[in-house]
Amino acid sequence: MTDRRRIALTVNGLQRDGEVEGRLLLADFLRHHLGLTGTHLGCEHGVCGACTVLVDGQATRSCLMLAVQANGRSITTVEGLAPDGEASHPLQAAFHERHGLQCGFCTPGFLMTLVEFLEENPEPDEAAVREALSGNLCRCTGYQGIVDAALQASASLRETSGQ
């Protein structure tokens, strides 16, 4: 059962390809074939949200998607959040400023979830933010820093887009 396939996809704006087994998880392809280890696996059954990436702009659990299913798609991971590789995306800046992370293991999943959420909800209140984050588990922060960071980032994103 070693049928392998060639896949070609865009990851963080770059054309990437690979030859993969049908059963390979997208998360493992990103992490171990492409070396993009910023996407983390916390449960591998779709509950913790740590592995969340954007697939064609939509937040997706990369542990619940096969690498072959990403063929022809465009993927964004935490490494692609800021073009310079610095933590310069408003969400990254806000997480830093509001102490929205401790061990940082779950953080990439929170960031990618929020990218999609804030694009569609530019002016959320706290309850909406909490609901949007309820599919991501964090054991360190108690969520308050994350919620505050999301609210701060939404404000700074509004400012940027308003200009």
Partner: peptide
């Protein structure tokens, strides 16, 4: 039903 990321798929 689940969460946004699961409803996307």
């Amino acid at each position: 039903v689940g969460h946004r990321a699961t409803r996307n798929r």
